[in-house]
Design a protein around this nucleic acid. Structure first.
Length: 222
DNA sequence: GACCAGGCACATC
DNA sequence: GATGTGCATGGT
């Protein structure tokens, strides 16, 4: 499995090159982006982030000083803005009470402890928590998203019913604990998903060259 | 005008 | 515990 996962990775990397994730100028901006991108096109998130930057609101203290209405107005282009305003403020309150508002202190915490803590924040689920750990905290945690899962299902590496932690374990149990590898691998999977996985069941131009009829690996038995 | 996007919480059964 | 639904904008 390790060889297979690494082969997929190298194939993607050769074809698509380094993805430069996460596109953000600071750790806080990465965290904000991780919350804003929930079920949302990245282009819309960029608009919201630009507005936040224009308002000089891209630090925990500056954002904390904004009224709910003001914050909502700034992030509006990212969609579901009422929900996301609450989620951002939930995170800020969490950062303040648990780590004195200090991101450096937060990331000094153990990855597993921090993950549990983040999952306790309303609005931060597994993918958002892991994105924060990996892309803002440089911690070796593999992020699973809809593209990743879809691609693995197509390759018959997991069953369609596999839970988040099972998909994550597939990567983390078979690959070295390497932050840079996890960073690039997930970004490449999203890139290939966006570019090649629209709606067709097979895609001959895909760098992965999957073939549902051909060389599929049997689904794991449940 | 439908459909989708780098999810998540909550209601209901 | 599984399944369904609201959230809301902007691009295709």
């Amino acid at each position: 499995m390790r060889r297979r996962l690494l082969r997929i990775y190298h194939r993607l990397y050769r074809r698509l090159g380094p993805q430069g994730w996460w596109p953000g100028r600071s750790r806080f901006e990465v965290i904000v982006g991780a919350i804003l991108t929930q079920n949302t096109n990245w282009g819309n998130v960029e608009k919201a982030i630009r507005q936040l930057r224009g308002a000089r609101a891209l630090t925990p203290s500056a954002m904390s000083a904004l009224s709910r209405h003001r914050l909502a107005t700034l992030i509006r282009p990212a969609g579901t803005f009422a929900v996301k305003t609450r989620r951002l403020q939930n995170f800020l309150a969490f950062l303040r009470t648990r780590y004195g508002g200090n991101l450096r202190r937060m990331f000094r915490d153990e990855p597993a402890r921090l993950r549990d803590a983040l999952l306790g924040v309303s609005g931060i689920g597994p993918e958002t928590a892991d994105s924060i750990l990996l892309y803002a905290g440089n911690m070796p945690v593999f992020v699973i998203d809809a593209y990743t899962k879809r691609i693995l299902v197509r390759h018959r590496l997991i069953s369609p019913e596999a839970a988040y932690h099972e998909v994550q374990a597939l990567f983390m149990n078979h690959l070295p604990q390497d932050t840079q590898l996890y960073n690039e691998y997930h970004a490449l999977l999203v890139a290939v998903g966006k570019a090649y996985c629209r709606s067709t069941p097979r895609c001959d131009t895909c760098p992965l060259r999957w073939d549902l009829e051909g060389h599929g690996i049997p689904l794991p038995r449940r």
